[in-house]
Structures are given as C-alpha cells and as structure tokens.
C-alpha cells in the first residue's frame, strides 16, 4: 500500500520551496534529501546533539524533532542561508574559521545556526553567556573552548558590520 503524501510549502533561506511528503517525513530529511540542503546534519535523531538545528521563524529548533508538514508556511533558515549577501562568510561562519571553532565540521552547522539566533537576542554576550548559549549542542572534537571564542568573535564581527 502506498503512503499518503501531503503538500507542504515553506520559505527556505529566502526562497519559496514546496514538496509532497509523507506525514512522517522529518524536517531534517525534507531539507537534506528532498531539497538537497545537506548542510543540516543529523547526529542523534532524538534532539540531543543539536547538529540538525535550523532557524524556524527566527528561533533555533531541532529539525530532527519536527515533521516537514508541521512547519508548513514557516520561514526556515539553514546554515547555507547564513552567509553574507555578497556570498562572503557570515559573521558566525567567519568567527568559526578565525578561532578554529571546528575540526571535523559535522556538528558545526548546528552551532552556527544556534549562535546566530542567540546573537540576535544577545548582541554583546559575556563569556559565561556564550558558554550557556552553546550548552545544548554536542561537539566531540573541539572541547568547546574555541567555539566559545567563536561566539565572542562573531559578536564582534556583527557589531563591526553594524558600524556605518
């Protein structure tokens, strides 16, 4: 018996995207395998590691815990949508590069989306706040020290960009 499909539409990284998917299709799979946006990674499939974090209407969410159909009409931003408009690395991406905030890079997209949402609300974080902000994402390579540095550096870059 063939599975029932449901139409779904959403804005992804500024572009309208749509598809027809089974109700059970995870948002992470829809992004990765239907839209081929493979920057969003899946590390645990149960919402603990944070690698699959994307922004839904500006808030960081775990795409492995959401069905694609349940975000119908929503606005999604993935790591691919966080570069600057001119194509250069976005502030958080640039900060990770400068501070050696990544090694294997698998968890990195989830950190970058999480930190982007955090800095929108806390443009000048303290080191303690930076540590807290990433405390829901797992990284097995870096020991986090350089990720915390990256959060602080990303805030600096964002503030520099705001200067006239």
């Amino acid at each position: 018996m063939s599975e029932k499909h449901i139409d779904v539409s959403m804005t992804v990284n500024g572009f309208p995207r749509s598809g027809s998917v089974p109700a059970r299709r995870l948002l992470s799979d829809f992004l990765r395998h239907d839209l081929q946006l493979t920057g969003t990674h899946v590390g645990c499939e149960h919402g603990v590691c944070g690698a699959c974090t994307v922004l839904l209407n500006g808030k960081a969410v775990r795409s492995c815990l959401l069905f694609a159909v349940s975000v119908d009409g929503g606005e999604i931003v993935t790591v691919e949508g966080l570069a600057n408009q001119d194509g250069s690395l976005g502030p958080v991406q640039q900060a990770f590069h400068e501070c050696h905030g990544l090694q294997c890079g698998f968890c990195t997209p989830g950190f970058i989306t999480t930190i982007s949402a955090f800095l929108d609300e806390h443009p000048n974080p303290t080191e303690g706040q930076a540590r807290e902000a990433i405390a829901g994402n797992l990284c097995r390579c870096t020991g986090y020290q350089n990720i915390i540095k990256s959060v602080l550096r990303a805030a600096e870059i964002r503030n520099e960009m705001m200067q006239p």
Binding site: T38, E80, L89, G105, F106
Partner: peptide, 14 residues
C-alpha cells in the same frame, strides 16, 4: 573551513 562552515561539506549521508 570555508567549505564546512557554509554547509558545503560532503559527509557520507550527503
């Protein structure tokens, strides 16, 4: 880094 922070990495399931 530039490739990986943009989400342009190519891991097995990609």
């Amino acid at each position: 880094d530039p490739r990986l922070v943009r989400g342009d990495g190519r891991y097995l399931d990609d």
